[in-house]
Nucleic acid binder design. Sequence first.
DNA 1: AAACGCCGCAACCGCCGAGGT
DNA 2: AACCTCGGCGGTTGCGGCGTT
Length: 346
Amino acid sequence: MGRAPCCDKNGLKKGPWTPEEDHKLISYIQLHGPGNWRNLPKNAGLQRCGKSCRLRWTNYLRPDIKRGRFSFEEEETIIQLHSILGNKWSAIAARLPGRTDNEIKNYWNTHIRKRLLRSGIDPVTHSPRLDLLDLSTLLRSTMCNSSLLSAPNLFGAQALLNPELLRLASTILSLKHENQEIAIHSPQQNQLSNIPLLQNQTPITSQVNDQFQNRIPEASNFDQTQLRQANVEGPLSNLTNCTSQIFQENLIPSSLTETLVSESNRMYCSSIPTVSVPTESSSFQSLNNGNQNFGFDSVMSTLSSPTPLNSSSAYINSSPEDERESYCSSLFKFEIPESFDISDFL
DNA sequence: AAACGCCGCAACCGCCGAGGT
DNA sequence: AACCTCGGCGGTTGCGGCGTT
């Protein structure tokens, strides 16, 4: 037996509510209170189904609803809660007085989600996107093993799928190389490289283009057949194994991925990737488990990144949107108090 | 000024679980 | 146990506003 419709839809109005309908609904609920939504429309003189009335009331007419732009604090709370709860909008809304689940859901889908994506962060897992991580793994490997630093290997990875990543890889390698040279000639200058770029500095993206052009001859050492082969065999599977190993051994330097994430956010970043001894609380431990096992532990692990993702970045032409965008990245270092109890949310 | 495309948001839809009969 | 009602939830849609061409 099929499920009965929530109400008889014949002759019932749909679509946007008129002020008159709103007034009828408000007046009725003020007198009788919410509840018994099935009979409410008839009693209130509305040609709507009960469900529509309930949604209109809970999402729009309720007197305690706060309207207007979300504050930074609210946005921070949403992101934090979403990292723990996922798409449990009602549970998130319960922690944001005056905000409805529908409003939070809309805000997430139209603002926060896009901003996280632009920042190179997976809005589902709240971790740096895997495609960028794969690239970072590749770069990490090539830095340790110069024999891997060949165009086919680079092209064989995700870079082929995203030319922007290839340019990024080229730039980072170039900058690393240059940085090493600077370090050799002038240690003091090397220290200066960690100072955030200022307005007279060239954005990395333009440096990329210049330096990528210089690297084209290297890439031209193989033809398109090799290119295709590189894309379907060896490197990709090798990379997967390598990625797994590096994750297990916790070898990814946070400074490298920091740079990648920052770059993907089109920030201007002077943090040259260096191979450093990983800290115990590497922010990528949790990724061993992949998305399937994403849970509270991994959230806690991911969120305990010792290094702010944008710690060495400067922002140019920063608009309020830009500030929020960078703010999103910085949210990954928030701390959850020990007294926090996940069961409160469930 | 008109056409077009994009974006944000209110509203709808379908499904689910709880509770009652 | 089976069926039904109801409230609630998350995903999706469609419309209106706005910016761009």
